[in-house]
């Protein structure tokens, strides 16, 4: 089988434009709470969902919109949910961290790591009720130190579940560098449970597509779970308004907020401790600087990288179609939401 670059790029473009639309709605104050975007994870979402068919399940984390959009969730219902409207995907009661689509057998959760055991359950039901159907569990590399996730890796192997674990490695667990709190190597860790694990460049959709194809095929054939470790960027920080990224966007304001208390700590008594405190101040600064460098200098945008698979004409056409579709969905959602306010 060969990938269909147009199909993959369409999935990615729709997902990206949805994330951009969400960002704009959030800025306008129309979305509440912590808005974690999956901007940067589009190639992972597209490359995996391209292999899914009706009856396959997805267990999602707090960046759940790209897989749902790539899979074909109703966009108007999705945006109405974000607006907290009763005609939303979950009647306005779930919101962006708790999106549920029974039609797509897809559920998300804001509890880090919980998608893995949930995916085991989806896979168990498939194994029993619908042989040949599979489940996918998406999570970040920050989640791999949760006990329940590690238990799920073992459970899936022990029960030979038709499950694909997709670990999106953006290198940051909230504001902590994952490597500072993670022992060993993740692919090796997954393999030690007795399942195949593949590392892929998660910004290259064709690479993700290939790896996901092998894993899904193995699951469908009843040979058990696999693990995909896909590196990808976190283009919008941990969530929109991430205070550490604001350091770069509004340096003066953030420095005035963060700076004085730090200086107070630096110079608190006993002053003899000053020498040991200076490097710690450096640790804070280094973390913020690294976050900025990775975000603004090193990050590779999966859409740009995948555009090379297409002719310029095709790319433009697909983007225009996706942009129009998303814009129309946002407009219809806002209209519906406005209608309610006028009636109230």
């Amino acid at each position: 089988m060969r990938p269909d670059p147009e199909d993959l790029y369409r999935r990615m473009a729709r997902a990206r434009f949805c994330e951009e639309a969400l960002s704009a709605l959030w800025e306008r104050g129309l979305i509440s709470g912590e808005m974690h975007l999956g901007a940067g994870e589009e190639a992972v979402a597209a490359g995996v969902t391209a292999h899914l068919e009706e009856g396959d399940a997805m267990a999602l984390d707090h960046r759940s919109t790209p897989p749902l959009v790539a899979r074909g969730v109703d966009l108007v219902a999705l945006f109405l949910e974000m607006l907290g409207h009763e005609e939303g995907l979950c009647a306005g009661k779930g919101g962006h961290m708790h999106l549920f689509s029974r039609d797509l057998l897809s559920a998300s959760s804001g509890i880090v790591g919980s998608s893995a055991p949930l995916g085991c359950g989806f896979a168990l039901a498939a194994q029993y009720l619908n042989p040949g159907k599979v489940a996918v569990a998406f999570f970040g590399e920050g989640a791999v130190n949760q006990g329940m996730l590690l238990e799920a890796l073992n459970l899936a192997v022990a029960w030979k579940l038709p499950l694909v674990f997709v670990c999106k490695d953006n290198r940051w667990a909230i504001t902590t560098r994952s490597r500072e709190v993670t022992g060993g190597r993740l692919a090796r860790r997954a393999r030690s449970f007795g399942m195949p694990a593949t590392r892929v460049d998660g910004t290259r959709v064709e690479k993700v597509w290939e790896a996901a194809g092998r894993a899904v095929e193995r699951a469908r054939a009843g040979h058990g779970p696999s693990f995909i470790l896909a590196s990808c960027p976190r283009l919008q920080g941990h969530f929109l308004g991430d205070p550490l990224l604001r350091v770069f966007r509004e340096p003066l304001r953030q420095t005035l907020e963060i700076g004085p208390p730090l200086l107070r700590s630096l110079f608190s008594r006993p002053l003899t401790a000053l020498a040991s405190r200076v490097p710690r101040l450096g640790t804070i600064g280094k973390t913020i600087a690294l976050l900025g460098v990775e975000r603004y200098v090193l990050e590779r945008d999966p859409l740009q990288r995948s555009a090379a698979l297409l002719t310029e004409e095709a790319r433009r056409r697909l983007e225009e179609e996706a942009r129009r579709e998303v814009a129309e969905a946002v407009e219809r959602a806002l209209e519906t939401a406005g209608r309610r306010e006028e009636n109230a």
Binding site: T175, S265, I284
Partner: peptide, 15 residues
Amino acid sequence: EDVTMLRRDLFVRFG
């Protein structure tokens, strides 16, 4: 989780 950042003032002071 994240206490180096969340409690950065204490981190600088106490290490």
